[in-house]
Computed example of a mutant assay.
Amino acid sequence: MTDLFGNPTGPAQFSLFGEGEDRLQAPARPPVDHEARAREKLNRVLAKARAARTMPWDERNVRMWQTVFPQMAQWLPAEEAEQLKLEFFRELERLKAA
């Protein structure tokens, strides 16, 4: 059996789609623990803010963290997320006043 261009088709032809032994399998990706990764990053950012005497970021990065920090916190349990956000914004206010 051939297609419109004279190329052979059928079971001997590999396909990228569907199921079966003759099909390519998608590469397996290890699961990502978003909660742990977010917690680690948020705690690093918060530690940097706590350790600073003056604002450790330029104005552009301050705006970025004001947006990204709460978004990343959504990966955490609600109570933990709220506490981290409260502490982060408290540190930002302290640094802005310094």
Rank of each mutant, 00 (worst) to 15 (best):
M64Y: 13
E80V: 13
E82A: 09
R39L: 12
L84F: 06
A38S: 08
E91D: 01
R37F: 02
L92C: 07
R23Y: 02
V68K: 09
A47V: 00
W65G: 02
L84M: 07
T9V: 09
W57L: 01
P31S: 15
Q13S: 09
D58M: 01
A28D: 13
L92M: 13
T9I: 11
P11M: 04
T9R: 07
M64I: 06
Q71D: 07
E93I: 12
A49R: 00
P11L: 05
L84Q: 06
L42Q: 02
A97G: 06
A81N: 04
F88E: 02
F17T: 15
F5A: 14
K48V: 00
K85A: 09
T9D: 04
A26G: 02
E59C: 01
R39K: 10
Q83E: 12
E93H: 08
N7V: 12
Q25H: 07
W65D: 02
K48A: 00
R29V: 13
A98Q: 07
M55V: 01
L4F: 09
G18T: 04
V68T: 13
R23H: 07
A81Y: 03
E79V: 07
H34G: 08
P30C: 11
K41T: 08
A49L: 04
E79Q: 13
P56V: 01
E79G: 06
A78F: 05
E59K: 14
F17N: 13
A26Q: 09
M72P: 00
L4S: 13
T54L: 08
G20E: 07
Q13L: 10
E19P: 01
N61Y: 08
F14E: 12
